[in-house]
């Protein structure tokens, strides 16, 4: 009996929520009919475009309903998104990769010579691809290891020299080079402490020094073989400061990015769904 008493207000709340949801759906459909006019378009293409815009607007609003709380409509839209994305990618994977690279050269080869050439060039890659798919089978899953071995072996062989050159050596050079750079032509002959000297000699050297200090301090912070005490502790703390500045910049940019996505959706809702001309 007490359980029933507790459930009553919850059921009442759910009923109110369902009522509000139904009302919102009706309002959404009414607004869509007024602004999009899907049934009074001149051609089938225009009707489909209007229906597409209504669906996109509806799904956008359903996605934002998560900000209130998780709900069944959001779950439907979420699963729809994953399903459509997968279906879309599968079709394009067939059209852009499997059809031109596998089907057409082998099963639709124009001549026997072309078929022979295709088989010579493509048999091993196709076999390796099929071996990767064997990962799905418990019994034959071990076959995928050979394909992975080729991928990792190839990847390491190609990537190590290129990555070392681009990610490490060039970055190291960029970190140290400004410290030994000669003053630029603007600063040649400039008096010490003059504006040109400050701008073209002192500022780049100061910037480079800060950069080197930051690089060393942050690297030291992640170096755990030495206890971070005394001078080591101070350097490590400087490293934390540099990291915090970096995280702050990243967070600021992230907020900016998320707002841009919201602005993009608002632009769509106002311009294309409600057709309100922006000022």
């Amino acid at each position: 009996m007490p359980d029933d008493l507790q459930l009553q207000p919850r059921r009442k709340g759910q009923a109110i929520e369902m009522g509000v949801l139904a009302l919102l759906i009706v309002v959404f459909l009414a607004v869509s009919m007024v602004f999009q006019k899907p049934f009074s378009q001149h051609s089938f293409g225009d009707t489909m475009k209007a229906v597409g815009t209504i669906m996109a607007a509806g799904i956008t609003l359903i996605m934002y309903s998560f900000l209130y709380r998780d709900n069944p409509l959001f779950k439907i839209a979420e699963n729809l998104y994953v399903g459509i994305a997968l279906g879309y990618s599968t079709i394009f994977a067939w059209r852009q990769a499997l059809k031109p690279e596998v089907y057409q050269p082998i099963f639709a080869a124009p001549t026997s010579d072309a078929l022979l050439t295709a088989l010579m060039h493509r048999t091993v890659p196709i076999l390796l691809g099929l071996m990767l798919v064997m990962r799905l089978s418990r019994k034959h899953g071990w076959l995928s290891r050979y394909a992975y071995a080729v991928i990792i072996g190839w990847g390491a062989g190609i990537a190590i020299p290129l990555i070392t050159h681009s990610y490490i050596l060039k970055q190291l050079h960029a970190a140290v080079a400004p410290l030994q750079a000669a003053p630029g032509p603007q600063a040649a002959g400039a008096e010490v402490l003059s504006q040109a000297w400050l701008l073209h000699v002192a500022a780049p050297i100061f910037g480079a020094a800060v950069l080197v200090l930051g690089t060393v301090a942050v690297l030291f912070y992640f170096f755990f073989s030495v206890e971070h005490k005394g001078v080591g502790g101070a350097v490590s703390k400087v490293g934390i400061w540099f990291l915090m500045v970096s995280f702050g910049a990243s967070f600021g940019y992230t907020v900016m990015g998320r707002l841009s996505l919201l602005i993009g959706r608002v632009q769509f809702l106002l311009d294309e769904w409600l057709k309100i001309p922006s000022q």
Partner: peptide
């Protein structure tokens, strides 16, 4: 914007 801060080291080099 999320990825933008990661690009500054490439500018410097």
């Amino acid at each position: 914007a999320v990825s933008a801060p990661d690009l500054y080291p490439w500018i410097q080099s």
